[in-house]
Structures are given as structure tokens and as C-alpha cells.
Simulated scan of single mutants.
Amino acid sequence: MGDTLLDRYEALLFDLDGTVYHGTRPIPGAADAVAHVRERGRAVRFVTNNAAKSPEAVADHLGQVGVPATPAEVSTSAQAAAVLLGERLPAGAVVLVVGTESLEAEVRSVGLRPTREHSRDVAAVVQGHSPHTCWSDLAEACLAVRDGALWVACNGDATLPAERGQLPGNGSMVAALRTATGRDPEVAGKPEAHLLRTAADSAGAANALVVGDRLDTDIAGAAAAGYRSLAVLTGVVTPRQLLDAAPGERPDYLAADLGVLPRDVSAADLAIGPRPGWEIELHDGVATVGTDGASTADRVDLLRHLCHVAWSSPVSAVRARDAVADEALASWDLH
């Protein structure tokens, strides 16, 4: 067996919802995977676009789903936005906050002065999700942005997951302010590079692996930051989306779940590329899949192989050549 993922990287940057847990439900195997990463001496960071919760609250939630974590291991888009503001503004500058008290605390932690009302002293606006944001909050921010204040959005997520379904996220509120001002904010969270780089820097890691379930945030963010990425199939991404992924949203590695980490699987075995046990012929956009007679043919390997083919030449349809391939394709819903 070749070197494992943990042999190659100094830190693992884990997305949360869809990767480690689903809301209040832990994803099976995630706790053991994180524990194993720590046992191997690799740094762990939990990286979230959620700007509404403090690192302490995120760490507490992780503990409740069976993944012990310290606040120092949590990197939020609110922290990244505050760091960005601290780099761009002089100490003591006034920042108008649209978001929670946790975001306000992050602004204060980098030596800036938060406010909720516009005045001529406001140097910047920082905008993060809060369920209590209302028209008057956006109105104050609108005035500041129109007057030339630096505008930083914690993230541009149009929706956020909830038990009732997808609800309006920070990006939806950002869109309202964009319409009102005609300006675009600087974005601190994924898929921009700042949040992931801040997380890696906090771990002292020069090379980090981003682990997540969304191509448009986790994987695209890794590409923007110059890091390798592992996509897991426990959350949002579907096999069809993987085949159709744009160049900036293509993971380097693919796994069904985090359970591959404690097994110390070879990094080469998780990489996108041709896989033993499968044969794929491509003609006029149709990929025909069959087995090569091997005794076992892993279906995740099939998806790794299909991604390799599709990223070289578009695949519009996938067909099975034998019963084993038919069963694997049925499980991925790629017929």
C-alpha cells in the first residue's frame, strides 16, 4: 500500500453539515475518523461558513454529536471576515455589523469597534447571517456602503439547511444589499480562499486537505486556496454532479464517507482516475461500463473512474454492459 492521505497532509480541514453531521444527527464513522486523525498527529480544523455561531457554540454542538472539539479547532466565516477587516483597517476603526453578537465579538477581538448604526465614522460593513436581521439593519448598511465603506460578507450562501428544508441564507440578504447599492462585497467564506487559509494558518499547516460534501463551496474553496480536496458522498453532492463538475469544482479524492480515514487507505486508491476492476468505453457521449472479470469491483472506484473519463470528455449517459455494472449504476442513479 502506498502512502495514505494522512501521510501527505499536515492538517485536515473538515466541513461540518453533510460531512461530520446532519444537523443534530452524527454521520456514522465520523467521530472515529476525526479521532484517528488526531491519533496520527495531524491537526484538525472544523471549517464552517456559518457566521451566526461562536466557535464555542460550534465546538459544543460537535461534542453533542460525539465529536469532541475545542473552540481553537473551529474556524468560522465570522472569524475569517474579522481577520480580513483587521488586515485592511487601522486599529480602532468603526465597523457596522449586520449579524449576530458573535460576529460583533469577532470584530472586537481584532481591535476594531463594532456599531449597529451608520455614521460618518463607519469605515466598513461586515455582514453575516442572523435570523433577526431586518430592514432597518440593511438600511443602515446600505447607507454606509453607498458612502464608500468597505463591505465584507462572511459568506455568499443563498440558502442554509434546516430541519424544515432550505431557508434564506446570508447570500440572500447580501443580494438585497447588492441590489440596493450596486456594489459587490468581498467574501471571506467558502468558496473564496480566505477562510480555508485562515484555518490552515491557525494549525500551522503549509499543506492541508479540505474534506467536504459540496462542490461549489468546499471543493471550489480548496481549489481557490491551493489545497487538495476529498469529497464525501454523505451530504449534498451527487454522482451526476461529480461527473458534470467544472474544472474549479473537481475533487482530487473521492470516498463514500469519512470511514476511509481510520482504514489508512492508500492516497492513490482514493484518487480520481482509472480503477482496477472496471472497463469504460466512451462513444458519442455515452459511457458503457463493464467489469474486467476481477472477483471484486468497488462501486466507489467506478465513480472515480467515471469522473476521470467525464472530466476528459463530457458524458451525457452511462450504460451497463453486465450485471455487476448494472447493479453499481443503479446504486448511483446514473442510468
Rank of each mutant, 00 (worst) to 15 (best):
T115W: 05
V187E: 00
C154D: 04
E87W: 05
G29Q: 03
A144K: 04
P314V: 03
D201I: 06
R321G: 15
P185R: 02
N170K: 02
H305S: 04
P247C: 06
S172R: 00
A287P: 04
S172T: 15
L258E: 05
V152C: 08
A59R: 13
W311Y: 00
T296K: 07
L215Q: 06
V152P: 02
D322Q: 11
A162H: 11
V95D: 00
D269T: 05
G212I: 13
L6H: 07
G92L: 12
A325F: 01
V125I: 08
E192P: 03
E140Y: 04
G111M: 01
V47S: 09
S119V: 09
P161L: 11
P191M: 12
T181K: 03
Y21D: 10
D216V: 13
V44S: 13
T234A: 02
D121C: 00
V67F: 09
P131E: 14
A320V: 13
A141H: 10
T179C: 10
S229V: 09
A82T: 07
V107F: 05
L302Q: 00
T4I: 10
V65N: 09
S109E: 03
S130M: 09
L334S: 07
S119N: 04
A139M: 08
T24L: 09
G2W: 04
D264S: 15
A320K: 04
V174W: 00
V125H: 01
E106G: 08
Q64D: 15
D184F: 08
V83T: 08
D201R: 15
S77Q: 00
V95G: 02
K53A: 12
R88A: 14
